[in-house]
Design a protein around this nucleic acid. Structure first.
Lengths: 158, 158
DNA sequence: ATTTATGCAAATCGTTTGCAAACCT
DNA sequence: AGGTTTGCAAACGATTTGCATAAAT
């Protein structure tokens, strides 16, 4: 179903090489961290998980991996840029739940039927504006379980 | 149909005052610039349009106007935060076409029927994750008319 | 050998903050 | 007068860049 580890590495290597770039140890490490994560990671989070990585190399390599379409950038309302593996590498087109409280970003998927419906609507809009569609982005912004006030505070006190 | 200028000012004033804040000349200027714009503006764009505004005041007042729900922040993939009037002030819930070439952000609207359909789908997802939905965000990312290569380059040369 | 990648430190640049003067009410 | 807002300049912090070393081909 989902892409295997070695297959992922092969695909990443192939995309980098068509971009004239090498798949170095640092770049492998970035792909591995992102594969292990279940949500898009900020740069500090990436460095926490692979403390040998130099900050500047992380920035440089994420840019490079983004240009090669191996990873993609996720922006939310908080000050951190996050990164995740490119959707067509993982095979999972997905969207994000974004918590306004703690900044958490969770992935979710919609039915392909509904995705198709979204694309049809957006296609029409794009045409009206002479816009060439590339991808859509649908996020749900709100409060996660931990950040939302409990429904019955008095009950929690008993 | 859409909110009138003075009505907009009244609503802005009222939201600020329930927040214990004044509707000063600088804040009026920000609301006016955003009302005059047809797309979300970056801070440099705002200052260009009202050159008397001090940078620090623009930042401080946009934060304050955002907390009072008079304006809202729009993030795209580029390095600039943009601001627009809060949707419920203008009465137009809308989405954004984001150009990957020049950073342009255009507003568009979907049918209310489709908006409702989106909300239903997202509501279900939110419930699964114990998430309290606040708003959704649906952008179409691609290339605008000016940034997309012409369909028939040779025709353009004649 | 030559090119490319890395790590460190310094520079950059959007944003935030301290503070004294101007502005309300 | 008392509290708030403003503008300037300095501080901040995430990101970028310069450069000398290390690694890859």
């Amino acid at each position: 179903m989902s892409t295997g580890v070695d297959e992922l590495d092969r695909m990443a290597a192939s995309r980098l090489s068509s971009d004239g770039q090498r798949y170095t140890a640092n770049r492998r490490a970035l792909v591995a961290v992102l594969r292990e994560a279940d949500a898009p990671l900020t740069i500090p989070q990436i460095i926490e998980r692979r403390s040998t990585l130099a900050t500047s190399s992380v920035y440089r390599n994420l840019d490079l991996l983004e240009r090669a379409q191996v990873v993609q950038r996720v922006v939310t309302n908080d000050e951190w840029v996050r990164f995740e593996l490119a959707e067509d590498l993982t095979g999972h087109h997905h969207h994000h739940l974004v918590c306004n409280g703690c900044g958490l970003v969770l992935d979710f998927e919609l039915t392909s039927r509904f995705e198709q419906s979204i694309d049809e609507h957006l296609e029409a809009v794009a045409q009206e504006h002479g816009f060439v569609p590339h991808l859509h982005r649908l996020d749900l912004v709100g409060l996660c379980k931990d950040c939302s006030p409990p429904p019955h505070p008095e009950a929690a006190l008993r």
